[in-house]
Design a protein around this nucleic acid. Sequence first.
DNA 1: GTCGGACAATATGCATGCATAAATGGGATA
DNA 2: TATCCCATTTATGCATGCATATTGTCCGAC
Lengths: 262, 262
Amino acid sequence: MTARTVMARTVTAEEDGRGMQVARAQQGLRELILAGDLPPGKRVSEPAMVDRLGVSRTPVRLALERLAREGLVTPGASGGFVVRAFTAADLADGIEVRGTLEGLAARLAAERRPTAADLAPLRACVADLDRVVAPPTLSEADFDAYVRLNAFFHEELVRLAGSGVVARAIEQASAQPFAGPSAFVRLHATEPAGRDTLVVAQEQHRLLLDAITRGQGARAEALAAEHARVAQRRLGAALADRDRLDGLPGGSLLRLAAGKRA
Amino acid sequence: MTARTVMARTVTAEEDGRGMQVARAQQGLRELILAGDLPPGKRVSEPAMVDRLGVSRTPVRLALERLAREGLVTPGASGGFVVRAFTAADLADGIEVRGTLEGLAARLAAERRPTAADLAPLRACVADLDRVVAPPTLSEADFDAYVRLNAFFHEELVRLAGSGVVARAIEQASAQPFAGPSAFVRLHATEPAGRDTLVVAQEQHRLLLDAITRGQGARAEALAAEHARVAQRRLGAALADRDRLDGLPGGSLLRLAAGKRA
DNA sequence: GTCGGACAATATGCATGCATAAATGGGATA
DNA sequence: TATCCCATTTATGCATGCATATTGTCCGAC
């Protein structure tokens, strides 16, 4: 344990903070789980994590509690936590939940009748996205740029809704594995039709901005919900060939036995 | 601390379980906060809670983490947790989020085309509710029965959606203070027009069941969302006279400064 | 009288000890 | 060889010690 302590102290010395050990444990556990190092269904042994992560059991416990909130682990029947397995339906539902809540956010944003100044960042973001998807073929860097701008678009959408409560709910929903706005996007970077998916999604961004600008709440809501369903399509495509999915972090968490809903 | 230990041991002897101390701390903290004993904005001192609740700091810490997920407390800027204050807009948004997600659940339930057997519990629940609201005047016991059946209705709705992910999301949303399906119902027990509110809500239950039975997804979704807005109306009425609200558990958490949205 | 600073008291985050419960493995028996 | 039971090992949940950060307070100076 001296070694552990020394290691912890070393890292702490590099960058100490108030909740640093918990953050380290949380991030480390996340990586271990998504990398498939801890297979789904397996109990997460705290002492083992202490050895692996170099932090004591207390932060490990807290991190597990937070990962349970994220959905990566669930409380085991007889104490402790087990790595959660996801069915295709779970993933689809997670996306649907996010889409539904983003629809709410879009409606609220439209109903608030934001000013031009309020909309400026979103407008700029859409313009940037237009430029990114414009070229006939896209590079890896272009996909990275898209992911970044796409994330910003969704953050702005939430901000325009002007509700901390809604923001929290969407944050929760997006934290679910594979439910985030940019999940699976990278998967199509190498695909020939990958660009088309982005073009369609970007058109939806444009329409969504238009609806919010005009105060069309119902239209904005429907557009946002439908926009999330491009992720549904990406999910379906990803499930079509398991090989590619396995390469993705977290791919091993999938249990494909159960049928998919959408 | 001997006294504390003895107390804890005593209670543990009464009913020991795996996470008993955490549950006790969580429940105790919830009560203290909702009773206004810990005013909003105040840091929740762990040692003080140790003395009050008779459990050590570890379960208190865990309970605070879970209450943070529930939204009753938020992480403080410099460690620890502070009791959260709610604006009227926060409450309205919480209800709207729940209504939106219940709309999703209702749509999924309708789209699954449940069998008559699947719908039997919900049908029976609606019939029971019909009987409860039938009398021209309602007693306290009638309101209690309504609350119980209403909770069951919403549970059944979630069950019929057939999605654990959606169920989790709705559970989260309903756990937000005052956002649950039965929030504010009791407040109107003494009001002359209290029964009418229940009659309207029950009519919505009936229509919702009808829509799900017929597989009308969009109608079910709209009805569920609108159904949650009766809670919005109750909230508005409750805010109208602060006096009654203060008597309610959690009333002291309200900060009425900010304007309400809906 | 008010502002500032230092000191004291207190809280937090992390690590760890300890008792009990659960899991694992081995051995014996059918 | 398969199965069941028991012992050992391990993990969990709770309590508590400790170092550091933070807060509150009191006193002095301006």
